[in-house]
Measured scan of single mutants.
Amino acid sequence: GPGLTDLFKTEKAAVKKMAKAIMADPSKADDVYQKWADKGYTLTQLSDFLKSKTRGKYDRVYNGYMTYR
Rank of each mutant, 00 (worst) to 15 (best):
F49K: 01
A24H: 08
L50E: 01
K9E: 11
L46S: 02
G40P: 05
Q34V: 06
S52Q: 05
T44M: 14
R60H: 10
K12F: 04
M66K: 15
I22F: 01
M66I: 12
Y58E: 01
K12W: 04
F8C: 13
D25A: 03
V61L: 03
R60G: 13
T42N: 05
S52N: 05
S47Y: 10
T10D: 08
G40H: 05
A13D: 08
L46W: 01
S52Y: 07
K28W: 05
Q45V: 07
L43K: 06
D38L: 10
K57C: 04
I22T: 03
F49S: 03
D30C: 14
Q45I: 09
G3C: 15
K51R: 10
L46R: 00
T44V: 12
L7D: 14
L46V: 07
D30F: 10
P2F: 06
Y41T: 02
K39F: 07
D59M: 08
I22D: 01
R69L: 15
K35L: 15
Y68S: 03
P26L: 06
N63F: 15
K51F: 06
K17L: 12
K53S: 14
V15E: 00
N63Q: 11
G1A: 10
G1I: 10
P26A: 06
P26G: 06
Y65L: 01
R69V: 15
T67Y: 13
T67I: 14
T5Q: 10
G40L: 04
K28Q: 09
S27P: 03
E11V: 06
Q34R: 13
T44F: 09
M66Y: 06
Y62S: 03
G64W: 03
M18K: 03
K20V: 07
V15W: 02
T10R: 12
R55A: 12
D6Q: 11
S27E: 07
G56M: 04
T10H: 10
T67G: 07
A21I: 10
V15C: 05
R55G: 12
Q45D: 08
K51H: 10
R55I: 15
K20C: 07
Y58D: 01
A37Y: 13
T54F: 09
Q34H: 06
D30L: 10
A21N: 06
T10W: 11
K9F: 07
L7M: 12
Y58R: 03
A19T: 02
S27A: 09
K16P: 01
Q34W: 05
K16V: 13
V61K: 00
A24K: 13
L4V: 11
K35A: 10
K51W: 09
A14D: 08
D48T: 14
T54H: 14
D48A: 15
K20F: 05
K17S: 11
A14W: 13
E11Y: 04
P2L: 13
K17Q: 10
K28E: 04
P2N: 12
D59N: 08
K39I: 09
F8G: 07
D30V: 15
L7C: 15
G3K: 07
D6T: 08
L46Y: 00
T67L: 14
P26I: 07
Y65R: 00
W36D: 00
R69Q: 11
N63S: 10
D31G: 09
Y62T: 07
A29L: 02
W36C: 00
L50P: 00
K16M: 08
D31W: 09
K57Y: 11
W36H: 00
T44L: 12
K20Q: 13
R60C: 12
K17P: 01
E11P: 03
R55E: 15
A21D: 08
K35S: 13
T54K: 14
M66L: 14
M23E: 03
V15D: 00
K20A: 13
A21R: 05
A21L: 15
N63A: 14
F8Y: 15
Y62K: 13
K39W: 10
V15A: 04
G3I: 13
K51T: 11
Y33N: 00
L50T: 02
N63V: 14
R60I: 11
K28F: 06
M23W: 03
K35T: 14
K12Q: 15
D59C: 10
A29Q: 06
W36Q: 00
L50A: 01
T44K: 14
V15M: 03
A19N: 01
A13Q: 12
Y65K: 00
R69E: 04
F49Y: 07
R55D: 13
P2W: 04
D38A: 13
Y62E: 03
L7E: 14
A21G: 05
T44E: 10
S52D: 15
K16H: 06
D6Y: 05
K51L: 08
L7W: 14
G40R: 05
L46M: 10
K28R: 12
E11H: 05
K9R: 08
T10E: 14
K17R: 13
F8W: 15
D31N: 07
V61Q: 01
M23K: 04
D30M: 12
D59R: 09
A37H: 14
G1K: 12
L50S: 00
